[in-house]
């Protein structure tokens, strides 16, 4: 249920603009990896190239190779929808489908996969909502609009929607940045539970959060505006936050730049 993600020489462009260059890193199964770094250094771009969401923007493309358990996801023969089903994504701001109920939101991905049987959908919805620590709060109002929940609940709903299709890898792009501290804690707790089953990669601008939830941390940075983002240091989270080997990392985590 969890797979290893490997990037080698990943370079991504927006039209003519090179946003990240030569990223090499390997994420082990059933771990949480945090991507940190100053704004605009390409964390989101890298994250979105892992599930091939980068290429939905006109003119955007990726070079290099990205594999999950040795399968190249950018291979010509690979079905991009299968890649995205295998590598789920949670976005920065909660984005439940506004026209759908809580239940419909959770099973939206399953329905896209052709699951129609009500009992299967109901079981899957309960399982995903329980896994997202949301079941207790919504079990009596599954038919109500998903957009009627609070921001934190909506984000957990989106997590439930993502894990309902049982992906191998879950990508999260600053999943807590639009949430209050209590909801943030709820989602951080959730990440601990989820890493039993999934490989998790999370972008965060909150360094305490990176230190709290992740096993490994990757620090990205740019030289100056207009330059492509690069991976500066990638190591155990503890090491990065206590004794980084690169001066730039130290400057960033101690707040001296960025």
């Amino acid at each position: 249920m969890a797979k290893r993600v490997s990037a080698s020489n990943v370079t991504a462009y927006y039209g003519g603009f090179k946003a990240i260059e030569n990223i090499n890193l390997t994420v082990e199964p059933k771990t949480v990896t945090a991507l940190i770094g100053p704004s605009g250094c390409g964390k989101s771009t890298f994250l979105r190239s892992i599930n091939r969401m980068h290429e939905v923007l006109p003119g955007a493309r990726v070079e290099g190779s990205l594999t999950i358990d040795d399968q190249d996801i950018y291979d010509r023969d690979v079905d991009v929808t299968a890649v995205r089903r295998t590598i789920g994504m949670v976005f920065q701001r909660p984005n439940p489908f506004p026209t759908m109920s809580i239940f419909e939101n959770v099973v939206a991905g399953l329905k896209l996969n052709g699951v129609r049987k009500k009992s299967i959908l109901e079981d899957a919805a309960e399982k995903a909502l329980r896994a997202a620590n949301l079941w207790g709060e919504v079990k009596d109002r599954l038919g109500k609009p998903g957009a009627g929940l609070s921001g934190g609940q909506q984000q957990r709903l989106c997590i439930a929607r993502t894990i309902a299709v049982e992906p191998q890898v879950v990508l999260m792009d600053e999943p807590c940045s639009a949430l209050d501290p209590i909801s943030t804690l709820a989602i951080e707790d959730l990440m601990f539970q989820l890493k039993d089953k999934f490989t998790i990669i999370i972008v965060t601008h909150n360094m305490q959060q990176a230190a709290r939830v992740s096993d490994r941390t990757a620090f990205f940075s740019i030289e100056k505006t207009g330059d492509p983002g690069r991976l500066i240091e990638y190591d155990n989270t503890q090491k990065i936050f206590s004794n980084p080997s690169v001066k730039k990392t130290e400057d960033y985590i101690t707040g001296r730049f960025g």
Partner: peptide, 26 residues
């Protein structure tokens, strides 16, 4: 909302499925 279109795509929807899931209901 782009966010909804991307949500559908990220769940593994084809473009037509994305239209049916996010665009038409909206």
């Amino acid at each position: 909302p782009t966010a909804n279109e991307e949500a559908a795509l990220a769940l593994g929807a084809t473009r037509w499925e994305m239209l049916r899931t996010a665009v038409l209901p909206y």
